[in-house]
């Protein structure tokens, strides 16, 4: 019903969110681990949020994918290109809730960043990271991103801005 492209990496598949992903997504958003990415949320809020993830694809033409292992369709994270109305510019974002510590966020984040540069023709992209989310800063750093001046979000407050190397630097 909406044409969201699939991407495969060495170990992962990035695909469109579906209704079957709600339980795993809701479990993550009910947990303390979601505190850096807008959580915790109720199940009702989580369902609407996953709808918004899909709607973002409609409104922007790009968005975030559900991440799975290549040989297992179970959702393990949400990674992709994100630019809601109150973001200063488009970001590549990630959260992985299963299989942490295996480099999945970096692998999926690089695939999303490559999609932004190679398919969408972007010349720059940032990652917006809540203060204290050290794991996410580690992912951004592994991807070569460098911190810039904070962005003051109207609801979330100060957020770290990490700018990724551009397409020429990665070529």
């Amino acid at each position: 019903m909406i044409d969201i492209p699939n991407i495969n990496t060495d170990r992962l598949t990035l695909r469109a969110p579906r209704a079957e992903d709600v339980p795993a997504f809701a479990a993550f958003y009910a947990s303390d681990a979601a505190r850096f990415v807008g959580g915790p949320m109720t199940e009702a809020e989580t369902w609407r949020y996953l709808c918004q993830v899909i709607g973002h694809w409609g409104m922007r033409g790009y968005g975030r994918w559900i991440v799975t292992l290549r040989d297992d369709d179970a959702p393990i994270g949400l990674v992709g290109l994100h630019n809601p109305l109150d973001w200063p510019e488009a970001e590549v974002g990630w959260y992985i809730w299963s299989g942490i510590g295996k480099g999945y966020a970096v692998e999926a984040g690089k695939a999303a960043r490559a999609h932004a540069y190679d398919t969408l023709g972007w010349t720059t992209v940032v990652s917006m990271i809540a203060h204290g989310n050290d794991a996410s800063v580690g992912v951004a750093t592994s991807m070569g991103a460098q911190r810039e001046e904070d962005y003051q979000h109207p609801v979330y407050g100060a957020m770290g801005v990490y700018r990724h190397p551009g397409p020429e630097a990665l070529a």
């Binding site: 019903m1 969110p17 996953l50 709808c51 993830v53 899909i54 973002h56 409104m59 809601p84 109305l85």
Partner: peptide
């Protein structure tokens, strides 16, 4: 707020995918 309304429009859109 406008940001909430933008997100809510996304929910309208995504509802079609989630429910058919």
């Amino acid at each position: 707020t406008e940001r909430q309304a933008w997100n809510f429009f996304g929910t309208e859109f995504g509802h079609w995918m989630m429910r058919g």
